[in-house]
Write a protein that binds this DNA or RNA. Structure first.
Lengths: 122, 122
DNA sequence: CAGAATCCATGTAGATACTG
DNA sequence: CAGTATCTACATGGATTCTG
């Protein structure tokens, strides 16, 4: 590998895949909330805000399937289900957090570039 | 902010937004290729591989709009258009690269979790 | 409470054909 | 060469209804 950016160019597809995985509308929001500890379904729903029941279920199932989240069912009445980040889930938070930090710092630069571009399109 | 993961929980929406921005099918692939220097349209198309004309145009326009890429047109015949990463584009490569590194290291763990989950679903 | 199931609107991506 | 325009297929997301 005699490329200038081996950390980027080498197997770029793997990057693209996890970015698509965590790049949907709710995943990082849910993982972010779970970063502070286990939560119940509706507790999580309220914390995230604006997410439908169906999408929270879908998102959590996906995260569970990929090993980022554990699902613990308490067979009580009414039922109680706790969701918690796995070790893998916590580890994912590190690079995602770094990207998030970058995002917060550069939101304005993107916004400005966008405004400039849009005005030039006339 | 007295949260345990302020770098994650604080304005999680901004993270979600750029993740959706770069989390489409082609963006990181294109940015990754451009990481090594300027390229022409069809050169980039061949380098990425599998991308349609339309999607490359769409992806590049989006990147240009957000200030990640510059578009330089040479009014020759046949026409020539060079695309190149901006400073902002290069900076974006840093956190994205980190996430990519994480992705490559943990692809197997995700794959295993997935296989386990799927087998348990009967 | 925590979902499953269904239906529907929208967005995203690809194929194809045409052009300065 | 580097696009634009159009059409179509499929995936994503939301609203609603029902249930153990």
């Amino acid at each position: 590998m005699l490329l200038r950016h081996p950390h980027i160019t080498e197997d770029c597809r793997a990057v693209s895949e996890i970015l698509q995985r965590v790049g949907d509308k709710w995943t990082v929001l849910v993982v972010g909330k779970l970063g502070d500890g286990a939560m119940r379904f509706n507790e999580l729903r309220a914390a995230v805000g604006g997410i439908s029941q169906k999408m929270l279920t879908t998102t959590l199932r996906g995260l569970e399937r990929d090993g980022f989240v554990t699902r613990k069912v308490f067979p009580t009445i009414p039922p109680r289900v706790d969701y918690e980040l796995t070790e893998l889930g916590h580890e994912l938070l590190v690079p995602v957090g770094a990207l998030g930090e970058w995002a917060r710092k550069n939101t304005n630069r993107v916004r400005e570039a966008r405004a400039k571009f849009d005005s030039q399109q006339a």
